[in-house]
């Protein structure tokens, strides 16, 4: 068999395949580190790890509502002593004869970099993207209803520019930090998601979770290439290696996805402190057992904590009318 010249290093220093980390460190500014989600402290998820139940007849989730409802929960977790996640929620509605299209901006950012750089990076990113989006959209949203020549900005451009501004802001103000950034902009019946990193956006349907974002992580690429399975990815030593993050300087490529919001849709945004510990089928199970979005969000945070809570946990759930 192959005579691997580096195996001794890995075998002796903790059995950890470290080459990527070492390289990243050796060839560019020290990589930002989001500290220590340690797989050793994780335990199997109580009561929820029975595997996906066959959904012959999807059970209903919580009851629909004719108003938009929100669930928000955040926790530092059980291992770390500070919170590097930031979440931001802005909802806008106008009742009356000439209503404006429903507006919403939901943001999750998961910072990385030691010495409080992580929380500063995620905070700067979430504030900047929100400020940019509100500044660009409020004139058209709040135009007089009889105004016929409303200049409506292009939503994907709004999202992309706001993300790039966040990237510049983090790069400028927290130069050694970085952050994931997943932002969902709701206008009317459209949702535009801007995304960098491995926080996630989902639609929770009665029959299952639909992941809207694609993780910018090494293991995600390996999964797409069929090199590792979902199960292997969940415990892969390099599962936290990202290839894209906000704050890494020029040339950032951002993912933009637009979708229609179906009546009654349930949007979930979360950091990897949640999805990394609570698999999709468990998320669905929690949704089915919850009475509403707030209860579901709280239960998801609790589930991640029960599974060890190695990382900060952030959850935003939006239930759309219908």
């Amino acid at each position: 068999m192959a005579n691997s010249l580096t195996r001794w290093v890995r075998d002796l220093f903790g059995g950890k395949d470290s080459s990527a980390e070492a390289d990243a460190g050796a060839t560019r500014p020290a990589p930002a580190v989001r500290m220590a989600p340690d797989s050793d402290s994780t335990q199997p998820l109580p009561e929820l790890n029975d595997g996906p139940a066959p959904d012959t007849q999807p059970r209903p989730i919580w009851p629909p509502s004719n108003r938009r409802m929100l669930g928000v929960a955040q926790d530092v977790g059980r291992v770390r002593n500070h919170n590097e996640d930031t979440l931001m929620v802005f909802s806008g509605e106008l009742g009356g004869l000439e209503p404006m299209p429903q507006f919403g901006l939901y943001v999750i950012a998961d910072g990385m970099g030691g010495h409080s750089l992580g929380e500063r990076a995620s905070g700067v990113a979430a504030r900047t993207i929100t400020r940019e989006v509100l500044a660009v959209l409020s004139p058209s949203l709040l135009a007089r209803p009889d105004q016929d020549d409303i200049e409506r900005p292009l939503l994907t451009d709004v999202m992309e520019n706001a993300l790039l501004r966040s990237n510049q802001a983090v790069h400028q103000h927290v130069p050694d930090g970085g952050t994931t950034l997943t932002a969902a902009l709701v206008i009317g019946e459209s949702i535009v998601i801007g995304h960098v990193g491995d926080s996630r956006a989902y639609f929770i349907h009665a029959g299952g979770c639909e992941q809207l974002t694609r993780d910018h992580s090494l293991v995600q690429r390996l999964k797409e290439l069929g090199q590792i399975t979902d199960e292997e990815a969940a415990v892969h030593p390099q599962r936290s290696v990202l290839y894209r993050a906000v704050g890494q300087g020029d040339g950032l490529e951002v993912d933009i996805i637009s979708r229609r919001i179906e009546p009654g849709a349930r949007l979930l945004l979360c950091s990897d402190g949640m999805w990394g510990l609570v698999p999709d089928h468990a998320i669905l199970q929690i949704a089915r057992n919850a009475a509403g979005p707030q209860e579901a969000a709280t239960a998801m945070v609790e589930a991640a904590n029960q599974a060890g809570g190695p990382d900060n946990i952030s959850v935003v759930i939006v239930q759309f009318p219908g």
Binding site: S4, L5, T6, V9, F13, S18, S19, A20, E21, A22, D23, A24, G25, A26, T27, R28, P31, A32, V33, R34, M35, A36, P37, D38, D110, M112, G178, D198, L218, S240, V241, L242, Y243, R244, A245, Q248, D272
Partner: peptide
């Protein structure tokens, strides 16, 4: 050669940057 290859000790958690050539 592998024997003298870099290894950065003690770094854990989310990182940015991948090996690229492997």
């Amino acid at each position: 050669f592998g024997i003298a290859r870099g290894y950065s000790a003690g770094q854990r958690g989310t990182m940015i940057g991948t090996e690229g050539y492997s």
